[in-house]
Structure formats: C-alpha cells, structure tokens
Design a protein around this nucleic acid. Structure first.
Length: 425
RNA sequence: GGAGUGGUGUCCGAGCGGUUUAAGGAGGCGGUCUUGAAAACCGUUGUACCGUAAGGUACCGGGGGUUCGAAUCCCCCCUACUCCGCCA
C-alpha cells in the first residue's frame, strides 16, 4: 500500500513503476477516487455536525413547538446521513480495491525487466559441481536412498506431495535446526507459527487469496487460508500494533509448513521436490526503522549466503528484476543454488529476501513511535533461511557420489548424526 | 460443542438513553515549592480521517439495528475467564 498523498504527488513515477512491473493497476483511478472520497466525507461530516448540534440543543427544557422543530430537523438529517454514508461506503470500497492493486515502488537500481531471465546475477559463490560419473537427479537419488516417496503421496494426497522417510526426515530436521541455531546466534527470536492465517492477514502481507490464478489454498467454511510462508504469520504478529522505537529492530525466525497451489505449474522445471504443494521452511523476518531497512536487507542476504556457503552448496545471487519482484517488494535478492539434476545442471532458486519497506506495514497497520511521539509506519523485511525441500534437492544432487550414496555436508553432520546416506536399492 | 460472566482511554475502574466535553484513581510529561530528592499542589496526557487553516468527524471488543439523540437498548459475531463435555 502506497501513501495516497505520495501517489498524488508522484503520479508519473507511480505510473512508470506499474509499467516496469508489468502490473495491472490504475494510479489515476486511485487519485480520482480519493478526491471523491474526500468530498463525500466533507458532505457527510457537515450533516453529522448539525445532527450533534440538534441533539445538544434538546438537552434542556424546551417549548413543545421548539422541541418538535428540532425533532423534525433531526429526522431529516437522519435520512440524509444514511444516504451519504451509503455513498461514502461505496466510494471507499472502490478506492480500497484500486489502492490495494498499486504495487510498492521499486528500488531505482533494481533491474528493469519482465521475467526471471531478466534478473541480474551479482555474485557467485562456488562453481557448478563436476562429476566423474553420470549424476542423477534428486528424485532418482531419493528413491534409491529410500528417503523420498512421491508415488504413495500421489495416492494419498495427489501430485506434488511427497513423503520424507528415514534419513530424509532427519535431514529436514537437521536443516531446520541448523538455520535456527545460526539465526539465534545473531539475535533472532525463534517461532513455530500457525500454518494457517486469516484472509485479511494474507492480504495485508500482499498475497492474493482469491481467483483462479491464486497460489493460496483456502478452507471451505472458514475465513482461513493455508500459509504459503511464515512471512504471513510473522508479519501478522505485530499487526495493528504501535511498537516502541527502542524495541526495534525486531528479528524473528519462524518455522512453518508452507502450502502452495502451484496451479498450472508442471513439467520438467517443477519435477520432484523443486515445486511442491507443501514444504517446511525457516523464515527470517525483520521489523525495523525506515532508515535502516536497506542495511537489514543486506544483512538478511548475508545470512542466506553464509548458510549456503557453510553447507558447501554452490550458488549465485541475483538482483530480481521489476517484473519478477511481486507487489510488496521494493527490492529482492534471490539465491540460486546449483542443481546438477535440473535439466542437466541449472541454477534453481533456494532463498529469496525482500525489503518491503512500509508497504506491508501500511496494510497491516504496524507503526513505531518516533522521537517526536508521532506514530510512523516501520519497515518490514523477510528472507528465507532454509526452504527444506529445495535445500534437500541441492544437497542430494551436489553431494552424490559414484556409488549412489550421498555425503552430508560437514556442517550438518552434528545435526544429522550421520555422515552419509547409503543407497538401499 | 454447551452453560454462565465479562470485554470502557497507557493501566485500573465508574457510567447502563440527552449537564460524559468518558467520573475517579494510577502512571507519563511539564511546572510550583526544595540545596537536591520525596511529598504536596497546579497544569497536561490517545488514535485515525477530512480541511491550506480555523476547525470538524469518528472511535467505549467487531458488525448491524432501534432513536431526533447510543458507551448505555436490541440482534449477530469475535474474544477472555469459570464450569461441563470431548480430546493429543
């Protein structure tokens, strides 16, 4: 959500930003509706003011005729107020809808572009893994190791679900705990969050829970959705709150299951664990002062890099282009790990960190009290610490050996309790 | 899930149709007094929106209704607590 005054004062920049993001939103309609709203409010408040005067005038003793005149005026006011309220409500609903479609402004240096292939590689750590044998993909590995079962999940739940088994379970737990330990050491407070959230919270974070293209599962008879990320529950945690300045920054690490409909996604690019309907994720979340969000965004990216570097997984960092940012993000960094089994070797997104500036804070009404005692919107950022499913893809495919076994990255061994997963089939 | 009782400003707490412009306390902030502090006393004290401003409007869990007028009456919902039921 952008400030209405900002939209009005920067209408050209807002229009250009919508175009840069290839989004469907109408900044001019927002300005027009905001004007209509102001006029409607003024008309309504005039009548309300008179109503209050009339009511106040009737407190004491009055001659019958005088009282009757006031009652008659009050009755007339009542009707016109009801009409004006109805008109205002209609305008506000229209404004809200149009306003909510306006995306956050993009960082001036974010690459302009339409799709993920327009993202700009800014850094590379490690090089694509080389094998002196023909490497398998994680699906074949997972089945041979007896740690992954897609076929039975298809029977029980449908496609794009999976069972983890045996060492696969321990690996997921190890990854989660590894991330939590790293983040707690940096002062992040650990959370295990609900896996569901109210529609209004999803919308506040910037998710669209409705429509055929929505990536969100909704519960049939409740105002609840399965969360696609703990960003939703961590960002909702402080919704409606005014936070004391000295409590900032607030740094959270939340574990949850993540659910995504992935409607229409199919084929080689989403084979196996890479694109699934459910996975486990440890998500970082930061609430901070506006002037500090740029620095915190770098910090979150640094943590993601450290986690993958310490695991020994080759990765690159991309600066996400405007068309691929998503409405709430001001700037977004993605880490893409090398996945040898993906189309014969390819970079695949494993983490993502976004600076959403005050876009989510406005929608969720999260503020802090500044030095003058005024309430101001704060900035909110999120970033993946570990998305277990994709981290497992990267580990299995990069750490496989000629005999079909998979080594555990040394940093994870203390968490797993074993050094290698042996082929069982 | 059933029954009962509540949800009021930063906090506690009164009010249960029109002198409430939300009493009274506590806390916070400013001041007087004091060498300083405490005490006492005086003043002040939220949020959002409309408006260049003056000012105005709304907000007593949320939504709707009754009324000339609602914190106050009615309906629905949410929520907390107590008891019962169920259950990991």
């Amino acid at each position: 959500m952008l400030d209405l005054k900002f939209i009005r004062d920067n209408i050209d920049a807002v229009r250009a930003n919508i175009a840069d993001r290839y989004m469907d939103a109408d900044a001019d309609a927002v300005v027009r509706l905001a004007d209509e709203r102001a006029a409607a409010i003024q008309a309504l408040e005039d009548k309300r003011r008179r109503r209050n005067e009339v009511a106040a005038a009737m407190k004491g003793k009055l001659a019958d005729a005088e009282r009757q005149a006031l009652i008659d005026e009050g009755k007339a006011l009542k009707e016109s107020i009801a009409g004006l309220e109805e008109r205002l409500a209609a305008v506000e609903a229209e404004l809200k809808e149009a306003h909510a479609k306006i995306p956050n402004m993009a960082h001036p240096e974010a690459p302009r572009g339409k799709e993920d292939k327009d993202n700009l590689e800014v850094k590379r750590v490690g090089e694509p893994t080389r094998f002196d044998f023909e490497p398998k993909d994680h699906v074949a590995l997972g089945q041979a190791l007896d740690i992954l079962d897609f076929d039975t999940a298809t029977k029980v739940t449908g496609t794009k679900f999976y069972y983890l088994k045996n060492e696969g379970v321990l690996l997921e737990m190890a990854l989660t705990r590894y991330a939590v330990d790293k983040l707690m050491a940096r002062g992040f407070m650990p959370f295990s969050t609900p896996d569901l959230a109210k529609t209004e919270i999803l919308e506040g974070i910037g998710f669209n829970p409705r429509g055929a293209e929505s990536n969100v599962y909704r519960l049939a008879d409740e105002d609840l959705c399965l969360i696609g990320t703990a960003e939703i529950t961590l960002g909702g945690y402080y919704s409606g709150r005014v936070i004391a300045k000295d409590e900032l920054p607030i740094k959270l690490i939340g574990i949850s299951h993540c659910f995504r409909r992935e409607a229409g996604a199919a084929g080689q690019f989403s084979k196996g664990l890479y694109r699934v309907h459910q996975f486990t994720k440890a998500e970082m979340f930061v609430y901070c002062l506006p002037e500090e969000s740029g620095r915190w965004h770098e910090e979150l990216r640094g943590i993601e890099e450290e986690i993958f570097a310490s695991l020994g997984i080759p990765f690159r960092v991309v600066d996400t282009c405007t068309g691929d940012l998503g409405a709430p993000a001001y700037r977004k960094w993605d880490l893409e790990a090398w996945m040898p089994g993906r189309n014969g070797g390819e970079w695949g997104e494993v983490t993502s960190t976004s600076n959403c500036t005050d876009y989510q804070a406005r929608r969720l009404n999260v503020k802090y009290k500044d030095d003058e005692g005024r309430n101001q919107y704060l900035h909110m950022l999120n970033g993946t610490a570990i998305a277990c499913s994709r981290a497992i893809v990267a580990i299995l495919e990069n750490f496989q050996e000629a005999d079909g076994s998979v080594r555990i990255p040394p940093a994870l061994v203390p968490y797993c309790g074993f050094e290698r997963i042996k082929a069982k089939r």
